[in-house]
Simulated scan of single mutants.
Amino acid sequence: MFRADRRHFSMMMLAALAGCSSKPAPAPRPQFKTYSGPPVTQVVVNKGQRRMHLVSNRSVLKSYDVGLGNQPAGHKQFEGDGKTPEGLYFIDRFNPRSRYHLSVGVSYPNEHDRAYAAAFMREPGGDIFIHGRGPEGNKFAPKNRDWTAGCIAVTDEEIEEVFAMLQPGVPIMIYA
């Protein structure tokens, strides 16, 4: 009798499990946003206005308020100076595992930046990104708009759009 009850229980459990597996699984959430609009042909950052524009030919597709390096005035010259670069650079890498949610690399330093820093026997710095806030940035951004070490910061929601819209090689012009 005990063996029959156990067998009956086992059969009920198998039927219940089979019922669970026959339900369609929920669709997986996409990890990243997608973009299917006009291509971004240039990124324009105006440091004085704290604005970044994603441009397709002559049309502005999206604009964002940005935070800059913690020493926003002037062009980045040396590692640790807290300044955001100025001039023409290019989008050169994407980091989906950034500690600032997502990040898009800017090609600083270029040859001119390296030569200038070398003339002073200093390092030019690097790792300049457009990035979100992430947990760390959310602590600083509400108190101080310019909180990065030289990067260009937007909200986490906005970096998801930027990450989807940009491609490697897109020029980024950063104006004072």
Rank of each mutant, 00 (worst) to 15 (best):
G48A: 13
F90M: 02
I152W: 11
C20F: 14
I172N: 07
Q49I: 00
A16S: 09
T84S: 04
V43H: 05
L61S: 05
D81A: 00
T34S: 15
R29V: 10
N110L: 07
S98C: 01
A115N: 10
P85H: 06
F32K: 11
D146L: 07
N70V: 03
Q77Y: 03
H75A: 08
H75T: 09
S103M: 12
F129V: 03
V154L: 10
N70D: 01
G125L: 04
R58Y: 06
T34V: 13
K47T: 05
T34Y: 06
Q49P: 00
A176C: 05
E157Y: 09
M1E: 10
E157F: 09
Q77V: 02
V40L: 07
P109Y: 09
G48V: 04
H8W: 07
E157L: 11
G74N: 01
D5Y: 13
V154R: 09
A15P: 00
A153Q: 12
D146Q: 09
T41P: 02
P171R: 10
V43S: 03
I174K: 07
V60R: 05
D5T: 03
T148F: 08
K62M: 09
H8R: 15
R7H: 07
R51V: 11
P38M: 14
D146I: 05
K33H: 10
S103Y: 13
R6W: 08
I174T: 10
R3Y: 08
S103G: 01
I130D: 03
L61P: 01
A27S: 13
P85T: 11
Y100C: 00
W147T: 10
Y89P: 00
H75V: 06
A141S: 15
I172E: 08
V104Q: 04
R29F: 09
P26L: 11
E123Y: 05
P26A: 06
A16P: 00
I128Q: 01
V162M: 10
F78P: 07
I152A: 03
M165P: 08
I159G: 00
M121T: 07
Y64M: 04
A119Q: 14
R93H: 06
P24I: 05
G126V: 11
C151Q: 11
L61D: 06
V66M: 06
G137M: 12
G80V: 07
F78S: 01
L102T: 00
Y116L: 14
R3P: 01
Y89K: 02
S103Q: 07
D156M: 12
E160N: 12
P96T: 04
G37Q: 04
P171W: 14
N46R: 12
F9T: 09
D113I: 03
Q167D: 14
A119T: 11
H101E: 14
L54Q: 04
Y108R: 06
G126E: 03
